[in-house]
């Protein structure tokens, strides 16, 4: 089983559309994991039917029992997260600000503060419209995206892929360079970096690739909207060459990305054959690189 993670650093480059197209390409031979749990969108294209839904607990939250509290304010003195407000003559926890360190509960003399597990989201095991297993999740409002829910999604998808003896795991990764993207990358065999020829596209590519490099995972790049700026496109290609990143495909700016999305289709399902060839070529190149690595 080979695990391919699609990431982008910058949002809006076409990461999810491309990951979903790969999922269409491998069909029932793949397990799909949507690790962009903060803004999960892949299900809008793959239309999964949910078979299993579970709450995900991560960390703790504090609660002050007003009957036990003696209003000493000791809790607010030690809280480094400004999570304890004095409202209407009593101390209350702001659940969005509370990071669950438990310091307040430890110093509260009347033991009026209890720590309880926090639900940080839900995760789902589903069947995509192509009949492939899909694992996805929804992070709760204002929850901490520590990467733990991402790790859970990946773990469940991997277990499924191994149990069902699938050949591929296609992962829609998280944006940015922080914990969620680090969790998305762990255990990957190949990373697809999706970018666009804009100053921020290149800037974010450079930063996220610095993270990928730390893991030593082979990577390839798809330049989307390539015709927006030739000079910037050439600069990106220069960066790829210098860093030993394979260029998997260049795709010109194409409204079919949006049109397919509106029709709830992946770009491989949508009736624009000009998009099929670059995606297929990119995937073949990945297969080739993985095979070479094996030998």
């Amino acid at each position: 089983m080979k695990e391919i993670v699609v990431i982008s650093g910058k949002g809006g480059t076409g990461k999810t559309s491309i990951a979903a197209a790969f999922a269409t390409l491998v069909g029932v031979q793949g397990v799909i994991a949507d690790c962009d749990v903060d803004a999960a969108d892949m299900h809008l294209l793959l239309k999964p039917s949910i078979e299993l839904c579970e709450d995900f607990y991560s960390g703790e939250g504090a609660f002050i029992d007003p009957m036990e509290c003696r209003n000493c304010g000791g809790c607010a003195d030690v809280c480094r997260f400004d999570a304890i407000d004095f409202i209407g003559g009593r101390y209350v926890i702001n659940p969005i600000a509370c990071e669950g360190c438990g310091y307040c509960a430890r110093v509260c003399r009347p033991k009026a503060i209890a720590m309880s597990p926090k639900i940080s989201g839900q995760w789902y095991q589903s069947m995509s419209k192509h009949g492939a297993f899909m694992v996805h999740a929804k992070l709760g409002v204002g929850a901490e995206n520590s990467g733990k829910l991402v790790a859970k999604v990946k773990k469940e998808a991997k277990t499924l892929a191994l149990r069902e003896e699938k050949a591929w795991m296609i992962v829609d990764g998280s944006p940015g360079i922080g914990c969620p993207v680090v969790s998305s990358l762990s255990g990957a065999h190949f990373v697809v970096l999706v970018t666009e020829p804009t100053p921020s596209g290149l800037h974010d590519l450079e930063r996220v690739h610095a993270v990928v490099k730390r893991f030593g995972i082979p990577s390839g790049c798809i330049i989307n909207k390539a015709d927006l700026n030739e000079e910037m496109c050439a600069r990106i290609k220069g960066f790829l060459e210098a860093e030993g990143i394979s260029l998997l495909a260049t795709i010109d700016f194409n409204p079919s990305f949006t049109k397919a999305m509106v029709m709830e289709q992946t770009i491989l399902e949508y009736d624009d054959s000009s998009l099929h060839a670059p995606i297929q070529h990119a995937f073949q190149t990945i297969q080739h690189i993985l095979q070479e690595k094996k030998q």
């Binding site: 903060d38 803004a39 600000a97 901490e144």
Partner: peptide, 14 residues
């Protein structure tokens, strides 16, 4: 603000 709906976004808008 940063994208998303988790704590970095909340910190930026609070």
């Amino acid at each position: 603000a940063p994208p998303g709906t988790s704590c970095p976004m909340v910190e930026a808008i609070k």
